[in-house]
């Protein structure tokens, strides 16, 4: 019983202490920006491909599914476009895409830091007098948080292109109806909601994965376990905070 209660509290405490060390002033701004740019490429630019690919197909599939399932003489034809846009904007491009990124980026961060820990590279930084948490983790968190709005935009655009492709090449519905639906009752606030959610999820992915990787003890098996644990924990936290944010931002 004690373990059930105390272990999560101890883990939360360790996470907060790590974040306290992470959000300190960098020892050298020059080195921070160098790392920050590297991480923007590593975590953000290198994820564009998978975001475009998945969003394109999901956009297409949503359009087809909605068309097939809600088709009715009483339903305006533009509803397909309208619903596709709302799903992409409000849920897929922020929440579901971040769940996907938790798998790709989260495991990358956890295994990279875990390997650095077991090969004593983090110890080497500490011996040199470098705040290793700040040097290694802060650029990852800031880079992912600043890249996520761009990934969300790419995801929305790819999803819409996917939806149009079902019209142009699949003949599922008229492209003009889809276009009208996509523009129907558009609320700019939903884009901002998507960005806000994405930024929060980016923080969860990068900080939680970094925590699991940074605190690895043992060898390669522990690194693998930390990588898996980080994906699971990030995904659970994303789903939970999605619920909270959806309620708060609605």
């Amino acid at each position: 019983m004690n373990t059930l209660i105390l272990k999560p509290i101890a883990t939360l405490g360790k996470y907060l202490i790590l974040m306290w060390r992470t959000f300190a002033r960098p020892d050298r701004m020059r080195m921070f920006f160098k790392q920050y740019l590297n991480e923007m490429v590593q975590l953000g630019v290198n994820s564009i491909g998978i975001v475009l690919l998945i969003s394109f197909f999901i956009g297409a599939v949503i359009t087809i599914q909605i068309k097939l399932n809600i088709e009715s003489p009483w339903m305006p034809r533009f509803v397909v476009g309208y619903t596709t846009r709302e799903i992409m904007l409000l849920e897929f491009s922020s929440s579901i895409m971040c769940l996907i990124l938790a798998g790709k980026v989260g495991s990358n961060i956890a295994s990279e830091l875990g390997t650095m820990r077991v090969t004593q590279q983090i110890d080497a930084l500490e011996i040199m007098g470098v705040n290793s948490a700040n040097y290694l983790i802060l650029p990852k968190i800031t880079a992912l948080m600043s890249m996520i709005p761009f990934l969300i935009v790419f995801s929305i655009v790819a999803g819409i292109i996917g939806a149009f492709c079902t019209c142009w090449f699949g003949g599922v519905l008229n492209a003009e109806d889809l276009e009208y639906g996509l523009q129907y009752c558009f609320q700019e606030w939903f884009v901002w909601c998507s960005f806000i959610k994405g930024i929060v999820f980016a923080f969860i992915i990068s900080s939680v994965s970094a925590f699991f990787g940074y605190t690895v003890e043992g060898g390669s098996i522990s690194v693998g376990k930390a990588s898996t644990d980080s994906v699971v924990m990030s995904s659970v936290l994303i789903l939970f905070s999605d619920l909270v944010l959806t309620r708060l931002l609605a």
């Binding site: 050298r28 080195m31 090969t119 004593q120 590279q121 080497a124 011996i127 040199m128 007098g129």
Partner: peptide, 30 residues
């Protein structure tokens, strides 16, 4: 700590940096 140097059992070089960048690292930092 800036007056200390340490050689680890596993060498603990930074994989993502070249040999020159590894040696330059403490200089870049301090």
């Amino acid at each position: 700590r800036r007056e200390m140097g340490m050689i680890f059992q596993s060498a603990a070089l930074f994989d993502s940096q070249t040999v020159l960048e590894n040696v330059m690292f403490p200089l870049d930092m301090f």
